[in-house]
Simulated scan of single mutants.
Amino acid sequence: MKTILKTVITGLLLFLTVGILVSCSSSKEVYSKITKVEDEFKIEKSGAQLWGEACNRCHLAPSPADYNDTDWRTISLHMRVRANLTEKDITKIETFLKSAN
């Protein structure tokens, strides 16, 4: 009787473990597919939008005409670190500022 009970319990535990592993891998696949779809439909912000949002968070954003291209490059490097901006975002902002000065 004990052997049968042990076998049944072992079988149930094995069944539950396999079920949990399968459901976890399935949910990871579903989440991955949802993330890919979300990425396809994201609207990229322009450099002007990012400049307005990021720079005005902490201070009044200076006019693009206030500095030359060399100054904007130096300011961009500094503010990327201070504002915790991505390389992609700071590149867009810097391109906008240089094109508008």
Score class of each variant (00 low, 15 high):
residue 3 T to F: 08
residue 4 I to W: 14
residue 4 I to A: 15
residue 5 L to N: 05
residue 7 T to Y: 14
residue 8 V to T: 09
residue 9 I to E: 02
residue 11 G to D: 11
residue 11 G to I: 05
residue 12 L to F: 03
residue 12 L to C: 03
residue 12 L to M: 09
residue 13 L to F: 07
residue 16 L to H: 11
residue 16 L to K: 05
residue 19 G to R: 08
residue 20 I to C: 10
residue 20 I to K: 08
residue 20 I to M: 09
residue 22 V to C: 13
residue 23 S to V: 02
residue 23 S to R: 11
residue 24 C to V: 07
residue 25 S to G: 12
residue 26 S to Y: 14
residue 27 S to E: 14
residue 27 S to H: 08
residue 30 V to F: 02
residue 30 V to C: 01
residue 33 K to T: 13
residue 36 K to G: 07
residue 38 E to Q: 09
residue 39 D to W: 06
residue 39 D to Y: 10
residue 40 E to N: 13
residue 41 F to N: 01
residue 42 K to S: 09
residue 42 K to W: 05
residue 43 I to M: 12
residue 48 A to W: 10
residue 48 A to P: 00
residue 49 Q to C: 04
residue 49 Q to I: 07
residue 51 W to R: 10
residue 54 A to H: 05
residue 54 A to L: 08
residue 57 R to D: 01
residue 58 C to Y: 06
residue 59 H to A: 09
residue 59 H to E: 01
residue 61 A to E: 04
residue 62 P to R: 05
residue 63 S to I: 08
residue 67 Y to S: 14
residue 74 T to W: 10
residue 74 T to K: 06
residue 75 I to S: 04
residue 75 I to M: 02
residue 76 S to C: 09
residue 76 S to H: 09
residue 76 S to P: 01
residue 78 H to C: 13
residue 79 M to Q: 09
residue 79 M to P: 08
residue 80 R to N: 03
residue 81 V to W: 12
residue 81 V to T: 14
residue 82 R to K: 12
residue 83 A to G: 01
residue 85 L to I: 01
residue 86 T to I: 00
residue 87 E to A: 06
residue 92 K to E: 07
residue 94 E to M: 03
residue 98 K to S: 00
residue 99 S to R: 06
residue 101 N to E: 06
